Simulated assay, not measured.
Amino acid sequence: MDANRHLRQPGVERFVKFVGNLATPSPREMFARLGELGYRGQDRARRALCLMAYRHVRRIKRIYVDGADRDRQPRKSNYLLLGPTGCGKTFLVEQLFGKILELPTAMVDITTYSETGYVGQDPSAILTRLLHAADDNPLMASIGVVCLDEFDKIASGQNNAVFAGAGTTKDVTGMGVQRELLKMLEATEVVVPLELGHAGYGDHVVISTADIAFVAAGAFSGFQTIAARRGNRGSMGFGRIAAGRPLDPDAVAVDFTDDDVESIANFQAYGFLPELMARFTRVVPFRALDIDTLTDILHTEVVDRMSNEFAAEGFELRVDDDVIAYIVREALRRETGARGLSSTLTRHLEHAAFDAFGHHAGGLIHVRMQAGAIDVVVDPSPPAP
């Protein structure tokens, strides 16, 4: 494969200029900027991703702007993010690569793809989404970032999706999709359809994946149990369960140790091809968000934003501290993480907002605890004439 063949394509000068103009903030600067954009917690994982992002941009600048010998540069990096739902995995990728670095970034739900020849989207269409994120410019797409969300669902036996009315099922083991991802995550040239749909129809373009960074993310429910069982069998200490560490196979908000995620054998036992897992430069565990972090997120990213919306409608939104504490406790109990914060408050405010918005001139909407439950009291001003 000629990894530099796309440098002979039309539009190379514009592409090189684009790469040259890419911002290269330091990892520390990216870390701080994420905080300014509202990202909370996950300091260790955030540092790892900021460093990966910095290396990605510096590498492509050396190759395409400085003319460095590709064969003497480190290979591109692919990262795997493990952590419970609502802990900030995909949000980190979106903010870091899409907003801070402004690289073409595609967020892909991997569960909608199936092995070529089966019902479902062809894996090559993953790069179609990246192509669209790059304004249909293949050169821009070739240095972008793909986030493979719900990655754990393609483990053998984890995906039982059935396509209604199709008269067939998806490659339910996920092994077919894993095999098709093997070369894509390494460095190959992929024939990419220009439009989403059936990959065998329509126009195509060839895109090299030699400089595309893949970031896979998943909750990996049950992985901790598998790792602990293997550790208890004496597998060189990998995944050994710590004293007092809970082993609930149905638990969602669990924390993974470095030992859990550094053994490829654990992923193989979970249902992944070992050669696919070897394509990931680094596996980064994310922790379940704690009470303080969830409280901070609820205040700054939910209540403050909702208060601005209500103020624009002429209403003061007042949320008592015990309501904040209750919502955070519920998010922890339900193991929904940050995702559960907004939905809970939104659900309780829907009736009041429906009656008040566009009808009353203003007033106070007070969210309080009453008899152990959230209660919303509306004190509107008289309706506008």
Rank of each mutant, 00 (worst) to 15 (best):
D255V: 09
T169V: 01
E102L: 03
P382F: 11
V284F: 06
R282P: 01
A45P: 00
G239Q: 12
I207K: 01
A338I: 13
P380S: 02
R58V: 07
R179N: 15
I60W: 12
A352W: 05
C147E: 15
G358V: 07
R305A: 14
R58P: 01
R230H: 09
S77R: 05
H366T: 04
A331T: 08
G67R: 01
L349C: 03
F272V: 05
I226H: 00
S124V: 12
V57K: 03
E29Y: 03
V145E: 06
G117W: 07
A373C: 14
G222D: 03
N160V: 11
S156K: 15
T116I: 09
P25I: 03
L247D: 12
I154R: 05
T168Q: 15
H366K: 05
V367H: 03
F97W: 02
A243H: 14
G271Y: 00
V12S: 12
L96F: 05
C50G: 11
L101A: 00
I291P: 00
V328N: 10
R14W: 08
F315K: 07
G41V: 02
T300V: 05
K183W: 01
M52G: 13
V206R: 13
D136E: 09
T85N: 06
I327D: 05
G222I: 01
G358W: 15
R5P: 10
S26E: 13
V378K: 04
A23F: 00
I327C: 05
I63S: 00
D321S: 08
L332F: 07
I324A: 10
Q9F: 09
R44C: 09
R5M: 10
Y270W: 09
N266C: 04
R333M: 08
P274R: 08
T112I: 05
Q42D: 06
D355A: 09
T173F: 04
D296P: 10
V177N: 11
A48D: 07
L34H: 00
L289C: 13
N232R: 12
M1I: 15
D259A: 12
P74D: 05
A278Q: 14
L276W: 05
R329F: 04
Q158F: 10
V367S: 08
D355H: 08
Y326I: 02
T112D: 11
G157N: 09
L273R: 15
G41F: 02
